[in-house]
Design a protein around this nucleic acid. Structure first.
Lengths: 134, 134
DNA sequence: TTAAATGCAAAAAGTTTGCACACGC
DNA sequence: GCGTGTGCAAACTTTTTGCATTTAA
């Protein structure tokens, strides 16, 4: 992978963010430092870094995808009101840490089990406030 | 809710399918019986039926949403190759059957936990065959 | 009769792609 | 110098919406 300033700065800005930005949010941040960068370049680079395992893509159901500069496994919680995603510092769930541990009540219909996708849902502090003040 | 022939036939076709069709797949099926129906009507009705709890929406990350005529809770498995979704007849996972059962290793960052979304990933029989024959 | 539902077409939202040019190695 | 990467604009995919018309209750 050729190291371009675009690539470097995209990764840097993503790693410097605790939030899990969408491609567009990240594009706007990077644009401050590289005003001529295009959104397509951000998408292309994010996709490539995901393939290389440098970052994670959080393909949030139905919404814009978000990206996480931390490539290590951890859980996420998504706000059902504003769509924001944060890290959730809980212990790995034993029943799910290995496909072989999953208890079956029948067969898999011929599927080969590969893994799972688990995402927690909640209401973030900001949205709790908004709701209370209405 | 007013009962129109569109609404009736959409629900009927969805319930008659073991697969979990996308709005477009379902539209094509319904169109055979109601040739003048529009895709927008299918989307509008599916959305309404989800709100009423008559059906489930499977908002598969990054892909088209799929719909499930069975409103009762059960797990799904998604083929990582073709995107197909099937039911997975496994027992509910204890650690996750209630938000209060989730073991925490820290705080929730101010989030109010509401639930979770769990989807299994695998390779479907058809795609296992395709892969083997290459 | 009248409010809700429909069909159509156009818009919206998010992401990807074709292409000519730029630039890292 | 070669080939990957970039910027731009246009295309694409999925879903939603505005509006005039139809229809169930």
């Amino acid at each position: 992978m050729r190291m371009t300033s675009q690539r470097e700065i995209i990764l840097e800005e993503l790693r410097n963010t605790k939030s899990h930005p969408t491609a567009e949010e990240l594009y706007l941040k990077v644009k401050r430092r590289l005003p001529r960068i295009s959104l397509a370049t951000v998408y292309r680079n994010l996709e490539k870094m995901v393939e290389l395992g440098l970052i994670q893509k959080i393909a949030t159901s139905g919404h814009q995808s978000r990206f996480d500069g931390n490539p290590n496994f951890h859980y996420h919680i998504r706000c059902i009101h504003c769509g924001k995603v944060d890290d959730l510092p809980i212990r790995p769930i034993k029943a799910l840490d290995n496909p072989e541990n999953i208890e079956l009540d029948g067969d898999l219909g011929g599927y080969k089990l590969v893994g799972f996708h688990l995402e927690f849902l909640g209401v973030c502090p900001e949205c709790i406030n908004k709701t209370e003040n209405n």
